[in-house]
Amino acid sequence: MASKRALIVVHSYFVRDTRPRRLAAALTDAGWTVDVVCARDEGEPRAQTVNGVRIHRLPARRRRGGKGRYAFEYISFTLMALAKVTGLWLRRRHRAIYVLGIPNFLVFSALVPRLGGSRVLLDMRDPLPEFFEAKYRLSEAHPLVRGLLAEERISARFAAQVVTVHHTMATLYERSVPAAKIGVVMNAPDPRVFAVEGNAQRDRSDRTMLYAGTVASRYGVDLALRALALLRNEIPALRLRVVGDGDLVPELRAVARAEHLEDRVSFDGPVPLEAIPRIVQAAWIGVQPNRDDPLMRYSLSTKVLEWCLLGLPVVAGETRPLLELFTKDELFFHAPEDLDAMCDRIREANGDPVALGERVERARTAAGRISFATEAAALLRLVAGDPGH
């Protein structure tokens, strides 16, 4: 058990999921042998080695649907993962099992390794009670929300260590687990991927707003489209580029048609992580509008950090973690769901190129304080069980 072998378990498509990829990279860089158990998307092989990481994919396509569909996917994947994790561990005796929610009860796929002495970590990157509150407009007293809070507590207590993505989220999780058991590993951009290209030049006349990531209502992407409709005559070159996929895409396409914006909006679909820097460096500003709901109040979008490091100005709806990391002189903040305020911030970005450049440099400095090397070191201490974390 002394060997440096780790197994990562995640209910997502690993190569498209930034956080587990960064965790795996940090471990392999430190000399760990890493296996990954994840979902399998259409066209992906069942087994594959990428950058030294052995990927084992389970036949579990992720599909959007109602609460019943979520329950089916969560339970079926956990049962398949239980069998796969047990088989891999019996052959390789991993020293650490690192499980990423959602769902949190996926941590029980590590039951046999835990009984065998492996260190089990649960990464609670999103709070499930708040997720379902926001998605289905449920109250805190709803039986489903209360059940999910119980799921959070039971799962957290099963793990030797709980990990989350920032300190605001860690404070939230103190409702379920003692603070001393919670570690923070922030989603710091990997400098090997998010490095400014020396020959990258932005077109000074371009006014393309970029949204990249999951295209869901909670991120307020529709607000960016409506801002475009309001400002198209005032800023004639204004465009919107949406990179990603999600439930909201059909609605956005319909709004674009209704507002006669088809020639100003592009929908690119998902792209590999490595393609993002070039897309970012070709844009004018990044937009992350955000809605005011129980989940988004705790949201810290990694892409905001990436955009700042790559020199892209950011217009963002306020969230608690963003306000802790950035000032209003660094990002163009507006109240969530406040379309008029968002339009004012876009006008401000358009009005003074010199001030815009100065803001970009301040934001780059602020984002740079979240170091990939520092967060990787924190991860390694947590995985190894170093009490000095």
Rank of each mutant, 00 (worst) to 15 (best):
V354P: 00
R22Y: 09
V243K: 05
D293C: 12
G52V: 08
R93D: 01
L128T: 12
A283I: 10
L230R: 13
V242S: 04
R46D: 15
K84S: 11
E262S: 04
R119M: 12
R125Y: 15
A24H: 06
P250L: 14
G87H: 11
I97P: 03
S205F: 10
L312F: 10
E361T: 02
L331W: 13
D29E: 15
F77L: 01
G183S: 05
R297T: 13
V107M: 02
L300R: 12
A170M: 13
A237T: 08
I346S: 03
V15W: 12
A141Q: 14
R320N: 05
K303E: 03
D17W: 11
S155E: 07
F372G: 11
Q161P: 06
L231T: 01
L149I: 00
S3E: 14
I182A: 03
E262G: 00
L115I: 12
E133R: 13
R264Q: 08
R345F: 07
A200K: 04
L331G: 04
D344V: 01
M124A: 10
A30S: 02
V280L: 14
L356E: 01
A256P: 10
M296Y: 09
A47P: 00
G357T: 08
G68H: 07
F105M: 00
P113G: 12
V165E: 11
P272F: 05
V243G: 04
R61M: 08
A60L: 02
L7I: 14
V34D: 15
F332P: 04
D340I: 00
A188K: 03
M80V: 05
R257H: 06
L88A: 01
V193D: 04
L210G: 12
V184Q: 08
S76I: 02
D352V: 10
R257A: 09
V145F: 10
L273Y: 09
P129S: 08
V165I: 13
C38W: 07
V354N: 09
V184M: 06
R381G: 09
D190N: 15
A227W: 06
R364T: 10
S155Q: 04
V383E: 09
S109I: 14
L149S: 13
E306N: 03
R40W: 03
P191S: 03
R204N: 11
